[in-house]
Simulated assay, not measured.
Amino acid sequence: MTLRKLAAALFAAAAIATSTIGLSSPAAAHTDSTTGTTVTTAILTSGQARQPSLTAAQMKNAVEPATARSGSAAATLNCAYYYVCGMGGNGNRFDYTTCSTTYTLPNLVGWGSLHNNQTPGTRAHFYDVNGAWMFSIDAPARNDVFWTPVWYVIAC
């Protein structure tokens, strides 16, 4: 757990430094190996979708799943329509759909998948352990995310 907190602190420091200097990068793009087309990932950074930090009440009242769903880390992330879903490298995953609810993520660690399969244009917001906004993703979009410093999500 200490390593996770250290990684979260380092990531938060880098994010603050980047947003302070104004080095926001555009959404990443990659080439789909099956079709050869360029795909934009729709991850939004500081200049594009800056959100306020979570309040103490939002963090205190964050909905925590009764049990963390887990599966094989190599399993494919299937995400139903109207949901934002993610899975960490450790196999823990989430599926959230209720808007205006702050959720605590189920101990996602390492690199993993993120899929916002909500209604097109719906934006999910992600926050660190201190409630500071980290990034957002518009639907419909998929991306790989380093989950270790991410602790909270608001689905829409």
Rank of each mutant, 00 (worst) to 15 (best):
L3K: 04
A8E: 13
F11C: 07
T18Q: 06
S19I: 09
T20N: 15
S24Y: 00
S25T: 08
A28C: 03
A29W: 00
T31Q: 13
T34C: 02
T35K: 01
T37P: 00
T37A: 13
V39G: 11
T41C: 13
L44M: 13
T45M: 08
A49V: 00
P52L: 11
L54M: 09
T55G: 02
A56M: 14
A57W: 02
Q58T: 00
K60T: 00
N61Q: 11
A62F: 14
R69M: 04
R69F: 04
S70V: 06
A73S: 14
A75Y: 02
L77C: 04
C79L: 09
C79N: 05
Y81I: 09
Y82G: 00
M87K: 14
G88P: 01
G88L: 05
D95R: 04
T97G: 09
S100E: 09
T102C: 11
Y103S: 01
N107K: 07
V109Y: 07
G110R: 05
H115F: 09
P120V: 15
T122W: 10
T122P: 01
R123N: 12
M134P: 00
S136D: 13
D138G: 01
N143C: 11
N143A: 15
D144R: 04
T148W: 08
W151V: 02
I154A: 07
A155Q: 02
